[in-house]
Amino acid sequence: MLSVFLKRLIQSALILFGVAAITFVLLYALPADPARMLAGRSATAQTVANIRHELGLDQPLLVQFMHYIGGLVQGDLGRSYAQKTEVITLIAARLPATLTLMAAGILIEVVIGVTLGTLAALNRGKFIDRAVMTTAFVGVSAPQFVVALLLLYVFAATLGWFPMSGYGTLSHVVLPAATLGILGAGWYARMVRSAVVDVLNQDYVRTARAKGLSQRRIILRHVLPNAVLPIIAMIGIDIGQFMGGVVVVEAVYGWPGIGQLAWQAIQQVDIPIIMGVTLTSALAIIIGNLVADFLAPVIDPRIRSN
């Protein structure tokens, strides 16, 4: 068990290294020049060259990369070009907001997805099934900014139930989290539906019926625990999806998380921040998958004994 954990840790480090290398090369291949952006439109060529030298951007790519990795292993993500602050400090300040948003989003997608998927499976071929599957299809297909604007129009502008934007209270979380969760809920509803349909046909469900158990107990105790097993692994992968959505959602709702930080950094070609946010996202995905992997045996005794 411990050795498996160690191997996973080494694997994770390698993945992070790979992500860093690819992002680094991609960013430096960009036609935009961060030194010119910092210097401003009217700066002389000499000023730009000075800034470039100051940032170390005049060195060969490999040297810059080694320098970056050297810092990275010591936990140093470099300094923001524009804000002149340590990147790690900037990210640390904004991470809690993003984590709150993601946790709320995952909660919403799992609750809605599992409920609707189960309902659809239990009413297979009937109206409820078709209604749920159509809704799920729309949820999966709708772009996030459209969902965000729709939610804002209905629940903030028209009904006034939730604030338009901002951060701080529970009611601020609802709309951005719902925007994130609705897409996932559609996926989950479809997956849970097929998983539940599959489990309903299993012999042990027939055994449960033969014992005279109530439908409620059969669903809650026998069907769902088995049906959610494949879903657990999904949540780990899901965090990657979320990270992409977070940038859009935070921008629309003015949510002060790392998505917004990334959005500003992209506009300013603030490469250290973009690197930092990318690596943080990669780390989040790795941790999500690790948690899912180590959660699976807790829930499924068959995996435990292997």
């Binding site: 042990y204 055994t207 005279g212 158990l213 026998h222 625990p225 829930i299 005794p301």
Partner: peptide, 24 residues
């Protein structure tokens, strides 16, 4: 009928490998 099932009339099946819930 639920009272009868498993109470007055009980049943065992062909497939012992799959007739018990694997996570319970």
């Amino acid at each position: 009928m639920r009272q009868v099932r498993g109470g007055d009339v009980a049943m065992i099946f062909q497939e012992p490998m799959t007739s018990l819930n694997p996570v319970m």
